[in-house]
Design a binder for these strands. Structure first.
Length: 210
DNA sequence: ACTTGATCATAC
DNA sequence: GTATGATCAAGT
């Protein structure tokens, strides 16, 4: 938190210069760059591993693009959703619950050249009882569809705060899944995401906004 | 304006 | 290939 608060208010270019890191001008071909940059700057250790970013703290790090009013510009990716029968059978064991038990959100303000974007005040969030119920209800609804092989029901419209969306290098990035007839079929890979309206709530709550 | 579906890069 | 990090862009 001390590190995060020290970089808050500075631009990405200012911080990158101190570390001698080159900054891409735009993100179209560098979509995860800001997230990896922050992992480096804040000393996270579990890059690209299936663990929290700060394993000893149980804290997951998420950068989140926002406008000047702290309204998120994008949804937030959580984790992949196995469609092959290996998904956790209950919420307590679920990867979604574990990943979201403590999250450090770093808002990134602005949408121009990447170096000009400003690092916002950090928000360390843990879901309260109401958040947990909303997340759990959505997770159970989505997981039920996965477990019965309802692949056509696996679209982004399900879920109030958590949703399932494609997650891969392209639409042809396939994975194996069990369908309603318990047959193996190829379908696009999907992941869990937090809806923008939900992360907006969290940030606004943290900043005391309406 | 906002959501859903599609896509891009890198580590292991 | 599957995980990590996400944003892009078409459609409503």
């Amino acid at each position: 938190m001390i590190r995060a608060e020290r970089v808050a208010g500075r631009t990405i270019a200012q911080v990158a210069d101190r570390f001698g890191l080159p900054v891409p001008v735009e993100l179209r071909r560098h979509k995860g760059w800001i997230g990896q940059f922050l992992e480096y700057v804040l000393g996270a250790s579990a890059a690209s591993r299936a663990e929290p970013d700060f394993p000893h703290l149980g804290v997951e790090l998420k950068s989140i693009p926002v406008d000047e009013r702290a309204h998120p510009r994008e949804s937030t990716y959580v984790c992949v959703a196995p469609l092959n029968g290996s998904i956790e059978k209950n919420w307590e064991e679920s990867w979604v619950r574990r990943k979201l038990s403590r999250v450090l959100f770093i808002p990134i303000v602005g949408e121009g050249p990447v170096g000009d974007r400003r690092i916002g005040a950090p928000v360390l969030w843990a879901p309260d009882e109401i958040d947990r119920k909303r997340l759990r209800d959505d997770w159970e609804e989505i997981t039920e569809r996965i477990m019965v092989g309802d692949l056509t029901g696996l679209h982004g419209r399900v879920g109030e705060v958590l949703q399932l969306r494609p997650k891969g290098a392209s639409g042809s990035d396939a994975t194996w899944a069990l369908n309603e007839d318990a047959e193996w079929v190829e379908t696009m890979a999907r992941g869990f995401y937090l809806r923008r309206s939900f992360t907006a709530e969290l940030l606004h709550r943290a900043f005391g906004l309406a």
